[in-house]
């Protein structure tokens, strides 16, 4: 169930030249699964900006974002003590399927993989991590994943995250991915079995009212903000996207 929460900025950290980490405090009770997102109201912008949850616990929330436009530019300038009007606990999240999952993140699709890795670890399941970055300068969180105890590999530039997986030949029974659509498509094409993919969309409300982000799938119309952002790889109609 979504909830409206006023979060307080505790810390802001620059991770790369254009990627930031925010740690917020406030009610996180609406967030129940890794892969969910929040939707933040910013000054001078009409629509909220959706951001995936990187990590959370009772009373704190971590977000990682890349500066891509007016909303994220403003978010990159918040200071400790600032408050953020936020709708939280949005979207469906990952199902934590499998005993030997691989988690695949590309660019700003990496943050939700962090909470997902921790959630698997709490179930005593050790996921393997595959990350894709545009360049070494764009890399973040490789050490954080390793500190969790996860074997973590990173690909840069023209080497794709799918090349990395093909190369390492990991044994896996499930996969979860978040990243740009071409990456999701390549991952779904290459990986065995049914995986979970997280999609991005321009959203109106983020809580299902406007149907602005509804996509066609093989199992019917789905609102990316409610029935997604995580979808099964076998329900995606790649032609209709």
């Amino acid at each position: 169930m979504p909830k409206s929460v006023l979060y307080t900025v505790e810390t802001r950290k620059k991770l790369t030249h254009d990627t930031y980490e925010l740690n917020l405090s406030g009610d996180t009770s609406a967030i129940t699964k890794p892969g969910q997102f929040v939707n933040i109201l910013l000054d001078g912008l009409f629509l909220r900006r959706p951001l995936s949850v990187c990590d959370w616990d009772d009373g704190t929330l971590r977000l990682i974002f890349k500066v891509v436009g007016d909303g994220t530019r403003q978010l990159a300038k918040v200071r400790p003590g600032d408050t953020l009007d936020t709708l939280t606990g949005l979207g469906n999240g990952y199902t934590l399927t499998g005993r030997a999952p691989i988690l695949i993140g590309g660019g700003v699709g990496i943050p939700p993989m962090y909470a997902l890795a921790k959630a698997y670890l709490r179930k005593c399941v050790l996921p393997r991590i595959f990350l894709g970055f545009r360049s070494p300068d764009d890399a973040f969180y490789i050490d954080e994943f390793r500190e969790l105890g996860c074997e973590t590999a990173a690909a840069y530039g023209s080497t794709l995250v799918t090349d990395l997986i093909r190369d390492r030949q990991p044994a896996y029974d499930h996969y979860c991915a978040c990243g740009p659509e071409p990456m999701l498509k390549a991952v779904a094409k290459m990986c065995r079995g049914v995986g979970e993919l997280s999609f991005e969309a321009r959203m109106g409300c983020g809580f299902g009212a406007c149907v602005g982000c509804t996509c066609r799938t093989l199992t019917g119309n789905k609102r990316i903000c409610v029935e997604g952002p995580v979808m099964r790889s076998d329900e995606i109609d790649w032609e209709a996207l």
């Binding site: 912008l45 629509l47 321009r202 959203m203 996509c215």
Partner: peptide, 8 residues
């Protein structure tokens, strides 16, 4: 088809 929402 998507996208069907834009900020103004």
């Amino acid at each position: 088809p998507l996208p069907r929402i834009a900020e103004c």
